[in-house]
Amino acid sequence: MRKSVTLTILSTVAVVASLLVNVPAASAHGYISSPPSRQAQCASGTVPNCGDIVWEPQSVEAPKGSMLCNGGGSRFAELNDDSKPWVATSVGTSVTFNWVLTARHRTSTWEYFVGSTRVAVVNDNGATPGATVSHTVSLAGYSGRIKVLARWNVYDTANAFYSCVDLTVGGGGNPSPSPSASPSRSASPSPSASPSRSTAPSPSSSPTGATTWTPGTAYAVGAVVTYNGVSYRCLQAHTALVGWEPPTTPALWQKI
């Protein structure tokens, strides 16, 4: 008991201290979103059972120099598992890697490896990157399935951010921006065209014929749902999310 209380005190002090002290800036964060990196496939739900990485794909931070997808740290070891069903994006002889950045910190270099070969390096010389970053890398000489390891080396810390991207080289051009999406450009969004996973609970009927509000369901304008026994009409087409319950989103739902 005493030990846990001590720990609680320490952590309380730490939390409070973090509010008082100007901590050194260290938390640059980022990952490759397209072609989808392993952590992006975890965060999008494309690959299941990834562990904590699903909540923070931008946080694969570890000391510089590792050749592992998780940077060799103690966390996110799932990213190193080549047997997971990672989707390999088909590309031609060059590919453009696009990064999501949640913080922009001075950058030393961006490095790309296939196996132990560094196929590209971009030297930012300590500059601050843009709000998003893209690099086009030649993959001439490669064919078939490969795994690219990308390292974002932060200029003013000892750490790097790591992303692995699975690709199939040859037999096609660059990946199309939306591989499977064939959006209906003119028709209004149909409620059944939900991209969500198929496990959504089946909506139960209510006496009025409306269905129970269900996360993951695509609702068109005018759709009627019930939530906690109250009926609502959809004002803005959207796919329902946890946190967008009708009572808390008057911009999406009108009580009727």
Partner: peptide, 20 residues
């Protein structure tokens, strides 16, 4: 904050599927 956490965590997979 709970709502921010859950809505953003729901939006991110949708955006990643659209960007990929």
């Amino acid at each position: 904050a709970t709502r921010i956490d859950s809505t953003r965590s729901g939006e991110i997979p949708m955006m990643l599927k659209l960007v990929g």
